[in-house]
Design a protein around this nucleic acid. Structure first.
Length: 567
DNA sequence: GCCGTTTTCGGCCCGACTGTTTTCAGTCG
């Protein structure tokens, strides 16, 4: 018996109980028990007695004992028998929760989505107490959209929407402040919807602007403090807008940034002081509500340091406050080690990229155009690479304020060889090795290729180590644990590619890299000047993995960084 | 269902909106 199975069993029990219309507190007791196990970093064998943990009582402990003793749970088996499988799917319908689904099953015997559709069309549903004609209509509409709508959107699809909305809102005369909140602000790879918090003196005016500017498919809610819409274009994504006064902005932003678990921990802290947190501020013992000018001030009132949105996830961040100190910040980044120019498939010249990096106040940069194998990207032949190398050395004289390194993003070929020979690599300051081809090779072959790169003395870094595209494709499926072990062994840098398409490595592997003492570089892989801004996304993604400034080589002073390369 | 040194009963994070009601339940975040 493993911990994951126990966690899944407890969660499944909670889900099935919810579908029976059970008391929500009872349901959440099972979820909390699952979470208690999940958040405990020990494995099952390292735990003395999991049923003694806080949050696990007689019933949830019984499930665990059942699983440990017999490998199955009587409670779960009973529930599986009582609750038809089709009910689980109904939870995907917005507006449908456990109570309603339980009622439809109990009174109309509805077990499947098809039966639900049928009953709605025959107007049987609106006859039930608590249901009406509008509910029936809504169910039919949601049933129709169920198949066509993705349940989560990758960050790179949402980013342009967020950017344009923040611009629109901040430019409005009645808006004092506006920010995206929710999982997007926490830098999750994917989000179910978008949340915005808006400080305004004129809710109606702002609502009007939003309504007239956005391509709205459906008005989901339209109240005095909240408006929810489903966008028609460019994505059919739901957006929530919350309107507050300026003084409430900070606490509302905190509230709607979440996560839910982070907020629960904060509310528990408040409770210990007889305070009460709501989105409008913190109610103190005397009943007065304190408001804040910033989230920093909000946290300070609880004697806490500012907790970056990216780490506000499980609630356990509040037990890791000492680790916040050295967490990497955007201001720490003083170099970008991966970018392209018009010499290969970039949109800007060497000079333009150099000036772009100077504008970012970087102290060091590396030009890393593609190698010859990547013909579609106009990859450089050895001759052109040497020519570029020469040109960079000349440009260095013109731009004394920044170290300009001459590098390459060299392909690791499908047969496991490298695109340039060692003599040429030795002439370069910095060598990136990447896989851009034959993704579908078996893992063994992929690892052979990666080993060739990681074990080559001239290679400094492995770029976008898995080749994934967030929410689209998994990449070439390397054994990442092995790759990280090799990176440690050969003292190579692994990349965190900051392009929101990639965010490669993913958070869990970045945590592992730091644990192993592997060096990480956050790079934009810019093919356009505008892409240099992705450093911000990359840093927030790194924060999500609790990466320290010291782990990230592009926070290092040029002297230290260059010495490391020479080793 | 779980918890507890102001508690073994009565809370559990808290509030907004909708659709159903005619004062509130359900859902959502």
């Amino acid at each position: 018996m493993d911990k994951k199975t126990i966690i899944r069993t407890l969660e499944r029990i909670a889900l099935l109980m919810e579908l029976q219309g059970e008391n929500p507190f009872k349901v959440s007791a099972f979820r909390k028990a699952a979470q208690t196990l999940e958040l405990d970093s020990r494995s099952l064998s390292e735990m003395d007695d999991p049923t003694k943990l806080k949050g696990i009582g007689a019933a949830t402990g019984g499930v665990i004992t059942d699983l440990l003793d017999r490998g199955e749970s009587t409670l779960l088996m009973e529930l599986e028998e009582q609750v038809p499988e089709g009910l689980v799917e109904m939870l995907q319908l917005p507006g449908m929760g456990g109570k309603k689904i339980a009622k439809l099953y109990a009174e109309l015997g509805i077990e499947t989505l098809d039966q639900l559709k049928d009953a709605c069309e025959k107007n049987e549903v609106q006859k039930l107490a608590g249901f009406g004609a509008k509910t029936e209509e809504k169910i039919l509409k949601e049933l129709e959209q169920l198949a066509s709508r993705p349940d989560r959107y990758p960050v790179w699809k949402l980013e342009p929407i967020v950017e344009s909305l923040e611009l629109l809102l901040k430019g409005h005369k009645s808006v004092q402040n506006a920010s995206v909140a929710g999982s997007f602000r926490r830098t999750k790879e994917t989000s179910k919807d978008l949340d915005f918090v808006i400080a305004t003196t004129d809710v109606q005016a702002v609502k009007e602007v939003l309504k007239s500017t956005l391509d709205i498919e459906e008005m989901i809610a339209d109240g005095d403090t909240k408006m929810s819409v489903a966008l028609a274009k460019p994505e059919r994504v739901d957006i929530d807008f919350r309107f507050v006064s300026e003084k409430e902005f900070a606490s509302t932003l905190h509230h709607f940034t979440g996560s839910k678990d982070h907020n629960i921990r904060m509310r528990q802290l408040a409770k210990e002081r007889n305070w009460k947190i709501s989105e409008y501020g913190v109610e103190k013992e005397n009943g007065a509500v304190t408001t804040y000018t910033s989230e920093t001030e909000f946290y300070a009132d609880f004697d806490l340091p500012f907790i970056p949105p990216a780490v506000r996830e499980t609630g356990q961040e509040l037990d890791r406050l000492d680790e916040l100190e050295g967490l990497v910040q955007l201001e720490d980044i003083i170099s970008d080690l991966h970018m392209h120019t018009t010499w290969s498939d970039g949109a800007h010249s060497l000079e333009e990229m150099i000036e772009g990096c100077i504008a970012k106040n970087y102290q060091l940069m590396v030009i890393t155009d593609h190698s010859r194998y990547l013909r579609v990207a106009n990859g450089l032949t050895p001759e052109r690479l040497r020519e570029q190398n020469q040109k960079i050395k000349e440009l260095q004289k013109q731009y004394p304020d920044i170290h300009i390194l001459s590098g390459t993003e060299m392909d690791i070929l499908p047969d496991g060889s490298l695109d340039f020979d060692d003599d040429l690599l030795a002439e370069l300051d910095f060598v990136i090795a990447s896989i851009h081809s034959s993704f579908s090779q078996p893992q063994e072959k992929i690892m052979e290729r990666l080993y060739a790169a990681v074990s080559n003395p001239h290679v400094d870094m492995i770029a976008h180590p898995t080749g994934r595209i967030v929410g689209e494709r998994n990449g070439y499926d390397p054994d990442v644990e092995q790759l990280l072990q090799w990176a440690k062994e050969f003292d190579k840098i692994v990349e965190l590619n900051a392009n929101p398409y990639r965010l490669d490595l993913a958070v869990n592997w970045l945590e592992r890299a730091q644990e192993l003492g592997v060096k990480v570089a956050i790079n934009t892989d810019a093919h356009h000047l505008d892409h240099l801004r992705f450093m911000d996304v990359g840093v927030r993604h790194a924060q999500k993995a609790w990466l320290k400034k010291d782990t990230i080589v592009n926070t290092w002073e040029p002297k230290k960084f260059l010495e490391t390369l020479q080793k």
